[in-house]
């Protein structure tokens, strides 16, 4: 059985199947992550957001388990993506002088490696911003909202999170439908539905994540940032706020039991 599994995972279809499964798992994570982040908009103080972060922390070992599972999915998905991309490059070393299309190639399906790499770079920054901002232990739930707001109120922070959100949007534009097809789901009756669902998911999640840098950059004072406590703080001072925060953090980062 193990050799059977090994042969499967060593095959092109096996690798793509695992990429699809982990990719769909990551989409589920993104949905949960965005839902958690949206609590930031629930009030102007960040209290709901802090309560949500605290709830995650209270999961204790359960949260560790979820984080490890999430990390495993990320690592598998990314490693397989780079491996299959390298194989694809090897499969055609001489390029066409003229690159044509019969209408099926588009931005999302032709740029999965690029958008995926951007998301990976963003992910590293994002984890350093929040999940590991206080070392291995997760940051305190009550300081998280101001951290997020302060990070996104800065120009560089907003730009990074905007780019990350847009990359997620484009990446997901192809991801859902492609994953389902790799898993064998295709039916003439449902192709349009699958396509629309994938596009809808990409737009909803992408715009959801993009909304944080846009809204928090425009009006940080309304969402429990430092500015909310002392509305007169100079912008320069705001930017120097030690903690960086992003909307995406809460699921992975804030939740863990301290110590």
């Amino acid at each position: 059985m193990s050799s059977r599994l090994g042969a499967f995972l060593g095959s092109s279809i096996g690798k793509k199947t695992l990429m699809s499964l982990t990719g769909l798992g990551l989409v589920v994570f993104l949905i949960a992550h965005l839902a958690g982040n949206l609590t930031l908009y629930a009030d102007g103080t960040g209290e709901t957001y802090a309560a949500y972060a605290q709830k995650l922390k209270d999961l204790g070992p359960g949260l560790w388990f979820m984080e490890l599972g999430l990390a495993a999915m990320f690592v598998a998905h990314i490693a397989l993506a780079f491996r299959t991309s390298m194989e694809n490059r090897e499969a055609r070393k001489s390029r066409y002088r003229v690159r044509g299309t019969k209408g099926e190639a588009n931005l999302p399906n032709s740029s999965m490696l690029i958008t995926g790499t951007v998301v990976l770079v963003f992910l590293v920054i994002h984890l350093l911003d929040f999940r590991f901002s206080e070392g291995l232990a997760p940051p305190h739930a009550d300081v998280l909202a101001p951290k997020v707001v302060d990070r996104l109120a800065s120009f560089t922070g907003a730009a990074i999170y905007l780019i990350g959100g847009v990359a997620v949007l484009i990446h997901l534009g192809h991801a859902f439908r492609s994953a389902l097809r790799t898993l064998g789901v295709h039916h003439p009756q449902y192709e349009n539905l699958i396509k629309r669902t994938g596009t809808g998911l990409a737009v909803a999640l992408g715009l959801g994540f993009v909304s944080f840098p846009v809204i928090l950059f425009a009006s940080p004072d309304n969402y429990g940032g430092r500015g909310a406590e002392s509305a007169q703080v100079a912008p320069a001072e705001q930017e120097q706020a030690p903690a960086s925060g992003s909307p995406t953090v809460p699921t992975a980062a804030p939740a863990r039991e301290e110590g």
Binding site: S12, I13, K15, K16, T17, T84, E87, N88, E90, A91, R92, T101, K102, G103, E104, A105, N109, S110, M112, H174, R177, S178, R181, T182, L183, G184, V185, H186, H187, P188
Partner: peptide, 26 residues
């Protein structure tokens, strides 16, 4: 190479073979 479900194959196929066959192969 590995399939990334772009669909250019179906569009280029002179016999119009459907990518549904790829899903079935998987």
């Amino acid at each position: 190479g590995n399939c990334t479900n772009v669909g250019e194959c179906e569009a280029a196929c002179p016999k119009g073979i459907s990518v549904g066959n790829i899903a079935r192969l998987n």
